[in-house]
């Protein structure tokens, strides 16, 4: 079976590099995008199994990206985990309402983050009927 592929969307190169290391060490394939615009393009090109999305991004912030993903018939099935330094009081509920599967504030505990990733990626039905 192929490794699950995760698209990292974050404008900070160091954070991308760190997360990339952590995810690859846990046997995930990664791709990345550095702004809101390329996030959509990469999602279409790479068809990832999961997107990890920052909110503060150039060229279309996380909310815009979320909106476009949800309203695009070929991308709306991709689960999204939000990982942001923004204040959860103003962003968490809005992101979950917009369809995010989970929300983490930076710095996130990597054990919890990996658990969430596993949980979101896990096929819900053993015969495969769940994954659409």
């Amino acid at each position: 079976m192929d490794k699950p592929r995760i698209l990292l969307v974050d404008d900070d190169p160091d954070l991308r590099r760190g997360l990339n290391l952590r995810l690859r060490a846990n046997h995930y394939d990664t791709a990345y995008a550095v702004d809101g615009f390329s996030a959509i393009a990469m999602a279409q090109k790479e068809s990832p199994d999961l997107i990890i999305l920052d909110i503060g991004l150039p060229a279309g912030d996380g909310f815009t990206v979320m909106d476009r993903l949800q309203n695009s018939s070929d991308l709306s099935h991709i689960p999204v985990i939000v990982l942001t330094a923004r204040d959860p009081q103003y962003t968490r509920q809005r992101m979950l309402q917009a369809g995010a599967a989970a929300f983490f504030q930076k710095p996130a505990d990597h054990v919890e983050l990996l658990n969430a990733i596993r949980c979101v990626l896990k096929p819900t039905w053993p015969d495969g009927s769940a994954s659409s």
Partner: peptide
């Protein structure tokens, strides 16, 4: 943001 980087 820098704190996250250090933590990571």
């Amino acid at each position: 943001t820098p704190l996250t980087c250090a933590h990571q």
